[in-house]
Simulated assay, not measured.
Amino acid sequence: MLHLGLGALAHANWHANYHSFENDSWPELSVLQAAHAAEILVKARIAQQHPLLIFEHLPKPPTQKTKLTLEHLLQDGRTYQYGELPDRLWAATGVQIPNLALYRSFGRLRNSIQHFTSPKKDVSKDAIEFIYGVIDPFIHQCWKLFAIDYNEDHEPYTYLVSGLIRRGVPFLVSPGLIGSLDGIDMEWPSGNSQYKKLMLGRLESLRTHKQI
């Protein structure tokens, strides 16, 4: 589940931070993929405690001697849904979703796009905010992973990190970024000295680590 969730995150990062001339639905797709990635990743963390904890409904045995199998779960089991996962995560692991209000509002945005219509705005910005405001700190807390490491670009850091900095999006700095620092365009957002100070501190910590 963790591997699949990180694959969905890479797809969400690609569609949220890049553009396609052939498919104008990338912003909306990034929302669907980011929400799907979060759902799988949260379930992956719960399942580390015990795989059955992700199931809201378990199959009933036809006889007392029947053993529960994967086939039974696939046919009759039902896992917890997106909106129910934060409480289940906390109860099973003690871990809380970072920025719970954003998690819930993003779930409503995903439902609107998936079942009704997309708002008349660039929703890729919402996907980026969600990836780096919720998924990034969550996967780092649980597995010491970094969202910027999961991107389908053949040069995974150069454009992605430049875009995040240009937009003023805080993100956790991965050690994998060390070899790409010199090629990244640091176009800082104007009038946001606090963000620049925060990210320069994180990047400087990375450079210091490299020297050590």
Results as ranks from 00 to 15, higher is better:
residue 45 R to E: 10
residue 207 R to N: 07
residue 185 D to E: 08
residue 77 G to Q: 08
residue 196 K to E: 12
residue 92 A to M: 12
residue 180 S to G: 01
residue 101 A to F: 07
residue 91 A to L: 12
residue 154 H to S: 15
residue 146 F to S: 06
residue 194 Q to A: 14
residue 9 L to T: 07
residue 24 D to H: 03
residue 177 L to K: 00
residue 169 V to N: 01
residue 170 P to G: 11
residue 185 D to F: 14
residue 49 Q to N: 10
residue 189 P to D: 03
residue 92 A to Y: 04
residue 9 L to P: 02
residue 122 D to T: 10
residue 85 L to A: 06
residue 201 G to L: 02
residue 202 R to H: 11
residue 71 E to A: 15
residue 28 E to K: 00
residue 19 H to C: 10
residue 77 G to K: 02
residue 196 K to D: 04
residue 40 I to W: 02
residue 198 L to W: 13
residue 12 A to Y: 04
residue 58 L to I: 08
residue 51 P to N: 04
residue 118 S to Q: 07
residue 84 E to H: 03
residue 116 F to Y: 08
residue 130 F to A: 10
residue 114 Q to K: 05
residue 14 W to M: 15
residue 130 F to G: 05
residue 63 T to K: 00
residue 95 V to H: 02
residue 15 H to D: 04
residue 29 L to T: 02
residue 33 Q to Y: 10
residue 3 H to V: 05
residue 150 Y to D: 09
residue 28 E to I: 03
residue 192 N to R: 07
residue 111 N to R: 04
residue 16 A to I: 09
residue 49 Q to P: 01
residue 55 F to T: 02
residue 17 N to T: 15
residue 172 L to M: 06
residue 145 L to R: 00
residue 108 R to D: 13
residue 157 Y to W: 03
residue 203 L to V: 10
residue 38 A to W: 01
residue 146 F to R: 01
residue 22 E to M: 14
residue 122 D to F: 11
residue 6 L to Q: 01
residue 75 Q to G: 08
residue 92 A to Q: 03
residue 112 S to T: 08
residue 212 I to T: 09
residue 206 L to W: 06
residue 32 L to R: 00
residue 121 K to I: 09
residue 192 N to D: 03
residue 107 G to I: 10
residue 104 R to C: 10
residue 103 Y to T: 09
residue 183 G to H: 14
residue 51 P to I: 13
residue 147 A to D: 02
residue 12 A to H: 03
residue 191 G to E: 01
residue 90 W to D: 13
residue 82 Y to T: 10
residue 163 G to A: 13
residue 144 K to Y: 12
residue 123 V to E: 01
residue 131 I to L: 01
residue 173 V to G: 04
residue 13 N to E: 06
residue 7 G to F: 06
residue 131 I to T: 05
residue 39 E to R: 03
residue 181 L to W: 03
residue 42 V to W: 00
residue 7 G to Y: 04
residue 110 R to S: 12
residue 185 D to A: 13
residue 33 Q to D: 08
residue 59 P to M: 06
residue 8 A to P: 00
residue 194 Q to V: 13
residue 55 F to V: 05
residue 156 P to M: 05
residue 187 E to T: 15
residue 57 H to A: 08
residue 53 L to Y: 11
residue 165 I to T: 06
residue 119 P to H: 10
residue 50 H to I: 11
residue 10 A to D: 05
residue 49 Q to K: 12
residue 183 G to A: 09
residue 63 T to W: 00
residue 55 F to A: 06
residue 166 R to S: 12
residue 106 F to D: 14
residue 129 E to M: 05
residue 39 E to K: 04
residue 209 H to F: 15
residue 87 D to V: 11
residue 144 K to A: 15
residue 117 T to A: 09
residue 60 K to R: 08
